[in-house]
């Protein structure tokens, strides 16, 4: 995760006019793409829990819990599909 952030900062700092234009050109994060899934899951969990939680005080912990649930379930689903592909 820290490597990914460092990579983004380096891209933005090194002569942006010549190499990379924000929002027009994609960032070269092909080697770090897996780290980008975590903020996506947390965003989904945060919106869901903000809509459903009776009190806002519960939102941070519930968001973390739901985010981890989704991450674990996706990992299990991925491992299962990988197993199916490898065995069949």
């Amino acid at each position: 995760m820290i490597d990914t952030l460092r990579h983004i900062i380096t891209l933005a700092a090194v002569d942006p006019a010549a190499t990379w234009r924000p929002f027009l050109d994609p960032i070269d994060l092909h080697g770090h793409w897996l780290w980008l899934i975590a903020p996506l899951l947390m965003g989904v969990a945060l919106v869901y829990k903000t809509l459903k939680a009776p009190s806002l005080r519960e939102v941070p912990l519930e968001t973390l819990r739901l985010g981890i649930y989704i991450l674990v379930l996706m990992a299990v689903a991925g491992a299962t599909l990988w197993g199916v592909i490898e065995l069949v």
């Binding site: 924000p22 050109d25 994609p26 903020p39 809509l51």
Partner: peptide
């Protein structure tokens, strides 16, 4: 809740645009 929802949804959209152009 409106502030949280707006920040998260705009944040996700802008992040997607930022990384993929």
């Amino acid at each position: 809740r409106a502030v949280i929802l707006a920040a998260t949804i705009y944040g996700m959209f802008i992040a997607g645009l930022f990384m993929g152009g």
